[in-house]
Design a protein around this nucleic acid. Structure first.
Length: 192
DNA sequence: ACGCAGATTTTCT
DNA sequence: GAAAATCTGCGTT
């Protein structure tokens, strides 16, 4: 599979990776290639490591849940929250440094019928749990590669300078002033 | 358009 | 036992 973003891309400071992921494409073959779904990444958040109070691995809390954060850059960290939602992250930095980028919104590109069947009338991909449902992402993909297999992130179009907006992360109660949310200024697909 | 409550269960204290 | 990197539906303005 050509065009996949390389492991080296993810093995960098998480904030850089977060900005760099904007414009790339998330592709899912969950349910078979015939039901392929894909979207352009338009909104992300960085969870930058053990010194980040909002990161699941804050204070190096290495548990069964956070273990994927300590894994290889360029793999998926998929966690379950609020009793019903899955959220997808791309693991960053070298192994044993627990950090990741939360994918918060996509601009739908392919597989509209499949997404609509999974999502009903509600918005398709504008929100971290919404895009997981639209793409069929669940905990089965926790720890999976993002370079090969059913979930991939492939090269898209790099945003122009000035097109990226920076702001505080959403839905957290810790480090609420730390501006680690990034999104494309003119995208109507951003959440909220 | 906006605000709030309810859903539902894993994870950690 | 409480909180959680959320979403939906229903109420009011």
């Amino acid at each position: 599979m050509s065009g996949a973003v390389s492991a080296r891309f993810y093995a960098r400071p998480t904030e850089e990776v977060a900005r760099g992921l904007l414009g790339h494409i998330l592709v899912s073959d969950v349910g078979g290639r015939r039901r392929q779904t894909a979207g352009k990444i338009v909104e992300v958040e960085a969870y930058v490591g053990p010194h980040d109070p909002a990161c699941h691995a804050f204070g190096h809390r290495r548990t069964e849940r956070t273990e994927p954060l300590y894994g290889e850059p360029g793999t998926a960290y998929v966690y379950f929250t609020y009793g019903m939602h899955w959220c997808l992250n791309a693991v960053t930095e070298p192994p044993d440094f627990p950090a990741a980028v939360l994918i918060r919104a996509l601009e739908p590109i392919a597989g509209f019928d499949t997404m609509r069947a999974r999502r009903g009338k509600a918005p398709l991909c504008s929100g971290p749990a919404r895009l997981c449902e639209a793409l069929g992402v669940t905990g089965k993909l926790n720890g999976a590669s993002l370079q090969r297999g059913v979930l991939r992130i492939v090269e898209g179009t790099k945003p122009k300078r000035g097109e990226i907006v920076t702001g505080p992360r959403i839905g957290i109660t810790q480090a609420t002033d730390w501006p680690l949310r990034f999104y494309l200024r003119d995208s109507p697909w951003v959440s909220r």
